[in-house]
Amino acid sequence: MLKFPKAFPMGAATAFAVLFTLSTPVLAAEGAGKSGIERPEGGYGLGREALPEEIDAWDIDIRPDGTGLPEGRGTVAEGEVLFTDNCAMCHGDFGEGVGRWPVLAGGQDTLTNERPEKTIGSYWPFLSTVYDYVRRAMPFGNAKSLTNDNVYAITAYLLYLNDIVTDEDFELSKANFTDIHLPNEANFIDDDRYEEPHWKADAAPCMTDCKPDPVKVTMRARILDVTPDGEGDAIE
């Protein structure tokens, strides 16, 4: 009978460190990851130095502390026009979502419901993510076509749709951006999966007579019948 170490209870703060501690002997034993490749003195001399203009062109990410925000400004009213023209066909005039495209507004106080509605206002922790994502990936199919001012205006309008600002004349800019906090910011926690009781169970699990009664089927996928391509029929 093989013996296994008990599952390690990992705290939120230590989970990451423990992961690496545990991984090390494995990698060393196999030589995986640790390739044994010795870097030559002075390096490989490959590639060339990136130019400042090149870094500026690609470095468009923005952090919650405002790092990366470009100069610019835009109002709720300006954003409404831009949103209607560029975004509403998928997200709806009021961010309510068309078909299965993402809902952007509403859903406040639904996170503990049976069917939570996760929107910018109800779920997203940081406004910087909205600016960053709209600028890099929207409009869908024509990414990176909006000006920085356009993105400020659309972001302002999304705040308005989520009742985080209420004045149509509100202007969002680099100067006031980090003053705004989204309502759900405090509800994100670090990964504490390994505190769950099932991970602490004996790592030599039951092999015989593990359940007192014969096992019964409690739920069947066939009832729902949502499997595509008639796969359910093909096996009849």
């Binding site: 503990t112 996760k118 779920y123 940081f126 994100f188 926690i189 670090d190 990964d191």
Partner: peptide, 15 residues
């Protein structure tokens, strides 16, 4: 943040 975070019954989400 909006994706690949794991919502718990408490309303908190693991990131």
């Amino acid at each position: 943040t909006s994706k690949y975070t794991d919502l718990l019954p408490t309303g908190k989400a693991r990131r």
